[in-house]
Design a protein around this nucleic acid. Structure first.
Lengths: 329, 329
DNA sequence: TATAAAATTGTAAACGATTACAATTGGCGG
DNA sequence: CCGCCAATTGTAATCGTTTACAATTTTATA
């Protein structure tokens, strides 16, 4: 492997000069710059990132913590992060935590010992204490899910308001028996969306029935399907369902189809996230659109600012209710 | 930041001894080992991966090259890779190439200058020349898509046979006008699947009609939907379609639904990959199941073997035709 | 042309680990 | 108690950069 010393010798200059050329400093004559560049080309030299990283004590790697890589909601955000990261010469290390603390620790370790410069956490099941501790010394941004009053900057949407609008829409089109498929309510977003759900009901004097709120242990098609199975067995069968994730909603939709019931006539469904699939179902899914790509881009630039020592403010982005076939006949 | 010298001083030993304890060498007395570990705990020391990497000239990072992160086919493979990588203390850097050579080059560079130890490429649009050149000096495995006779080891399935079986199934259930939605035929898998398609037709003396083979520029729902639009306008309208990706098939299915035609009565559809979503459509999608997770695991262990200098053999895995609603009434 | 100031270049010390090789220690037989 | 050998520990070089500071060259000015 050819290193900076070889180049220096070849060009007849010192390593410092070569380094300066490499880093585009202008304190070097045009003539020597040419000589150095010639040597670099001749020797086919590529500076070692390893050496550079050690010296600069940075890795230019960003960690992205997500619970499940298979949820398209995350993939869209990741695209946004990627776009910004690449343009600023950072690379991203994708970390699937499976919501397991051990798994998480592996990744936290990476940051602690400088293999990564910072973290964008999207894991709602994150170990908050550890994260907080880590945030004292390292750059961390939360995306989508966050920890209020923790000082960790975040990008997210107004979950309560979004849920409120979704349920409000169901009420507007005449439903009063509205079930909710929520996820684990230890997660903030789940709490907030439940708040929104209840707020909408209360607003219209619809009594809140605890048995109408189901919980999915994970965000997958199966979980949605199972939940719908239970919903269809409830007495005073709900006529509409609000699911906190498109994946759940799609699974639920499938179950309604399976039982030869009609959507939206027998059961209206609203999802959350507006993933691409949500437009491919039959009927298409009414859902809340989150600006995933934008969220990713913002999270990434916040993180990089943070790494560079700047102060950053949390951001709450807009969302939108997209009305489609599963609620509109 | 506390480093190995601090630990050495604290424990009253030399840095070499600390390093030996760190790396579990047994040439160190139990007693000193204890002293060192005590010092490590006391100082809360974490060895710097940066320093270690430089010295060992490795990064313990694997690159995964995929064209689009949003295709669930890849996410499942990635899970497999991840599983193996983590257990062997490697991390994975996910690289979305968008099938763009510039983008690709960024990642190749990472390997050239030791920021990554090897590559698993799943990009069919990869620049073969560059990849071959890179493979001379670096560990590279291809997964799913490969370059025959290049010496680059790969994991894949028998695409021709799989396509053959898919189309054969359509013929078995009575179809003779069978269209194909293929992707760019510069890709090997596309060529092979087309071969399989034609082989099945020929076998049953069905003439091959070039106008029945459409091409999607990308693997997305939209592309499938567009393709189906064109298919439905063909004279001698096909009664069945074989799509080389579930995403295309699902888009196509959507279009058939949109036009109020029945699947499979008016149009039977077979997809490829068995992504989770293929079971959520209406009707569910007949498709070819690839062992994605296993493919990922194997690719990862092949790569790591390669990095360690071992010789590895290419692997062709089994596939399976999964018959579901879109072909079986 | 001499001299001060500015621009360019070079020297050598980091960064934080690993590891040949050297030095020391301890155990054991005679 | 001495000498030898093995086991343990230490010293210092090394990986490939960047950069403070020193040294040199160039330029500007009188």
């Amino acid at each position: 492997m050819t290193n900076i010393h070889h180049v220096a010798k070849e060009a007849g200059v010192s390593v410092a000069t070569v380094s300066r050329v490499l880093n585009g400093q202008n304190s070097v004559t045009y003539k020597t710059k040419l000589k150095v560049e010639e040597a670099i080309n001749k020797l086919n030299y590529e500076p070692s990132v390893l050496g550079r990283n050690l010296r600069n004590s940075e890795s230019r790697i960003l960690l992205i913590l997500i619970p499940q890589i298979s949820n398209p909601f995350y993939t869209e955000i990741i695209k946004g992060i990627e776009q910004t990261a690449i343009s600023l010469h950072y690379n991203i290390l994708l970390c699937e935590t499976d919501s397991s603390p051990q798994r998480e620790n592996i990744y936290f370790e990476l940051v602690r010992n400088k293999m990564a410069d910072g973290i964008i956490s999207m894991d709602p099941a994150v170990n908050r204490e550890t994260l907080l501790k880590l945030a004292e010394k390292h750059a961390i941004i939360q995306c989508s899910e966050y920890t209020p009053d923790s000082g960790i900057p975040y990008v997210t949407i107004d979950n309560e308001e979004a849920a409120y609008r979704a349920v409000n829409h169901l009420i507007q089109i005449g439903h009063r028996n509205i079930a909710m498929i929520n996820s684990d309510e230890t997660y903030l977003y789940a709490q907030q969306r439940r708040q929104g759900y209840q707020k909408a009901l209360l607003k219209h004097d619809i009594p809140i029935r605890p048995e109408y709120v189901l919980h999915a242990s994970e965000l997958g098609f199966d979980n949605g399907q199972q939940a719908m199975k239970r919903i269809l067995k409830l007495k005073d069968r709900p006529t509409a369902v609000f699911a906190v994730s498109d994946l759940l909603a799609i699974g639920a939709l499938k179950e309604v189809n399976n039982q030869r019931l009609q959507v939206p006539e027998d059961m209206a469904i609203v999802g959350f996230d507006k993933i691409d699939f949500s437009n491919m179902t039959y009927p298409t899914l009414t859902t809340i659109s989150q600006p995933m790509y934008k969220m990713g881009k913002i999270a990434a630039s916040m993180l990089i600012d943070r790494i560079k020592g700047k102060q950053v403010e949390s951001v709450i982005l807009e969302h939108e209710l997209v009305i489609r076939g599963s609620t509109a006949g």
